[in-house]
Amino acid sequence: MTADQDVGKSRLLDMISIRGATGPLIGLLLLCVFLSIATDSFLSFRNFLNILDQITVLGIMAVGMTFVILIGGIDLSVGSVLALSMMVLGYLNVEAGMPMAIAISGALLASAIAGAVSGLLITAFRIPAFIATLAMMSIARGVANMITNGSQIIGFPAWFNMGAIIRYGGFLTMTVAVMLIVFTVATLYLRYREGGRSLYAIGGNPEVARLAGINVQRTTVLVYVASAVLSGLAGVLLAARLDAVQPSSGVAYELDAIAAVVIGGTSLSGGTGGVVGTIVGVLIIGVLRNGLNLIGVSPFLQAVIIGSVIVLAVAVETIKRRS
């Protein structure tokens, strides 16, 4: 009872709270302090905007991955679905000459179909999520390659690339704006909508969730559709950023997305975590890559440091939970 009242009182505080993500957030702050001392070029408004540009694709994919991991699933197909979406976009807009609005819708639709197939394989055919999405990873990559027989497509309208370059009001590129909208909507949905809360229930215990009247199968399919559509959206933004599409895009991005979610404190076994933690996780990866480049750390050493940080973040979180 008291808990309910507390929630009611501190709703605003709750909205910006970082439940379960304090560890990663402290890590992120320490990282920023260290980088500010280590190099002059890190701590500037402009570099902050660069980092936002740089995390757009990973950020949007990681939101979808958070939903999937919250219900105890995994989605290995996000990188390939991103490539599929990009190729459909390029084909419809450049090769078939359709307006961008239709091309984007087509790209998102293709992604949604890929997600729906994964979801149905998992629910109706009881194939483990790891296997179903592994298969989709291969299928989507194959289809992406088939669209142009492996070649790239260039020749988007000039405004498309400008959306990723021009900073409106000296601050927001179109692509970063889309990312911020996705972050906000996903956070609010998970916290305050019944559908969002039911994801935690399914991740905690699918059987109990079912008995509590949640349509587990339908929700699971929708979660995979959402993950795929967000990957598709990330693909559209990546196409804008690169001003070109190629079927080999997004290889191994699923691992980055999973890493961001896990660093952000969402448990791989499902049921705990959230989008705010994931945003912190995405920022840690983004700041780390940016900062190491700025310090001029050799590319080989960078790979070692990033791996170590993933282990460190998760280890700290695990130890904290146990104690």
Binding site: Q54, N290, N293
Partner: peptide, 27 residues
């Protein structure tokens, strides 16, 4: 593309660019 942004932030005076991937990005 991200890395090139970082290079520019570091105040490079010249840029030697070997494009990655098939879609050699113009960005």
């Amino acid at each position: 593309v991200n890395q090139v942004q970082d290079l520019i932030t570091q105040g490079i005076d010249a840029f030697i660019y070997i494009p990655a991937g098939a879609a050699a990005a113009a960005v």
